[in-house]
C-alpha cells in the first residue's frame, strides 16, 4: 500500500486528499506536497485523512511541519478524520489541541475558527 495524494481547490481552501499509509517511507511525499502548496501560495489547507489506513509519528511530524508553514503566512491547516484508530494517535500525542479536526470536508472548508 503506497500513499496517494490529490488536491482540489474549494473557494480559498485547498483540499489535500490523502490515501494509504503515511509512515517513515511515504511521509516525505506528503511533506513535499504540503511544501509545494505553501510555496505556490496556498495557505489555507484542509487535509482529508478519511482514506488513510495507517499513520505514524513521522506523518504527525509532517502535518505539524505543514501547520508551521501555513501559520507563517497566517494560514490554517485543518484535518478531516472520523477514524477512531487515527484519532487515537492525535489524542495520545496531544495534537487534538493543535489541529482543528473536522468530521467532513464540507465542515472544514466552511470553518473559520
Amino acid at each position: 500500500m503506497d500513499l496517494s495524494l490529490s488536491t482540489e481547490t474549494v473557494g480559498d481552501r485547498t483540499v489535500v486528499r490523502v490515501g494509504g499509509e503515511i509512515d517513515v517511507y511515504t511521509a516525505p511525499k506528503l511533506r513535499e506536497q504540503l511544501v509545494e502548496l505553501v510555496n505556490d501560495g496556498s495557505y489555507h489547507l484542509v487535509v482529508d485523512m478519511e482514506g488513510v489506513d495507517f499513520l505514524d509519528s513521522t506523518g504527525l511530524g509532517v502535518l505539524v511541519g505543514g501547520l508551521k508553514r501555513v501559520r507563517a503566512h497566517e494560514g490554517s491547516l485543518r484535518l478531516v478524520c472520523n477514524q477512531e484508530r487515527i484519532l487515537k494517535i492525535f489524542r495520545i500525542t496531544g495534537l487534538t489541541k493543535v489541529f482543528p479536526i473536522h468530521t467532513s470536508v464540507e465542515d472544514a472548508v466552511q470553518a473559520t475558527d
Binding site: 509519528s57 511530524g61 505543514g66 508553514r69 500525542t93
Partner: peptide
C-alpha cells in the same frame, strides 16, 4: 531536517501512550 519537529520524541511518546 527542515520540518523535523522532533519526530523521534513523538515516536517514543506514541509508543509509551500505546
Amino acid at each position: 531536517d527542515e520540518g523535523g519537529d522532533g519526530e523521534d520524541d513523538m515516536g517514543l511518546a506514541v509508543i509509551s501512550g500505546l
